[in-house]
Simulated assay, not measured.
Amino acid sequence: MSISIKDLPDEERPREKLLTLGAKALSNVELLAILLHSGTRKKSVFELSQEILAKYKEDGLASLVNSSPKELISIKGLGLAKVTTLLAAIELGLRLAKKPSAQKLAIKRPLDVVNYVMPRLRYEKKEHFAILLLDTKNQIIAFPDISIGSLNASIVHPREVFRCAINHFASSMILVHNHPSGDPSPSMEDIHITKKLIAGSKILDIEILDHIIVGDNKFTSLKQQGMIK
């Protein structure tokens, strides 16, 4: 028997539960049910939500980030209105995650960097090479992209990296890039580019503190690996 939201007591209905207990108290199914609003004649909104989560169970909600409208519409019960609502909610979440804090954040350890950059880079399909620019107190000044695409020496040129650092009056920087494969292990190219940029940093007296490689909720710090002295 299909259970609809109307069959539930008021305190168990997703909207009422959210208003009473807050969004964090809701399961993924309940949050999706609120966004979808309704099911179909043969399928309740809960069943539809469960079907979506089951379809993407391998990577969970992360898979929805890169889902296309065409892919989502292929799920029976999802029309244009529901699909656009889902994709708009996902994009809003991503933009909030990427929005820099109004208060300057001081970087004290690699995990501080990871917590700052992971929401922005974790779901990217291409490699993004960026630099975290810091002031004399190790507070974040800016986090600009330098290049997008397969990481190699022709794309990541020291000139662009240090021009950006100089323009922001940075005292030091941390190199950051992602591996779309999810594996943050450094490649030979990663190590080569790091050494090349460190050589340039010594001339300009803008210290490179670390190179953080982000994977799927994992990271590698070249500093911790002993590759940066």
Rank of each mutant, 00 (worst) to 15 (best):
L105W: 02
V117P: 06
T136L: 11
A97G: 15
L121H: 08
A88Y: 11
I90Y: 07
K108P: 03
L105R: 08
V113Q: 10
L132N: 09
V117F: 07
I131S: 01
L94Y: 01
L132K: 13
A142P: 03
K82S: 15
T136V: 07
H128C: 08
L96M: 15
A88E: 12
S101W: 08
D112W: 02
V117E: 01
I131R: 06
A88S: 11
P110E: 14
F129G: 03
L92M: 12
A97L: 09
I107F: 00
L134G: 08
Q103K: 13
D135N: 15
L134Q: 09
L133H: 07
A89M: 13
T84V: 02
S101E: 13
D112G: 01
Q139P: 00
L111A: 10
L87C: 07
K126E: 14
K137E: 13
P100E: 07
L132G: 10
A97F: 02
A142F: 10
P119D: 04
P110Y: 01
K82D: 04
V113M: 10
G93A: 08
R122G: 06
R120Y: 10
L134V: 05
I107M: 12
V114A: 01
K125R: 15
V114S: 04
R122C: 10
L132H: 05
N115D: 09
L132D: 05
I141M: 05
S101M: 09
K99E: 13
V114I: 11
L87V: 04
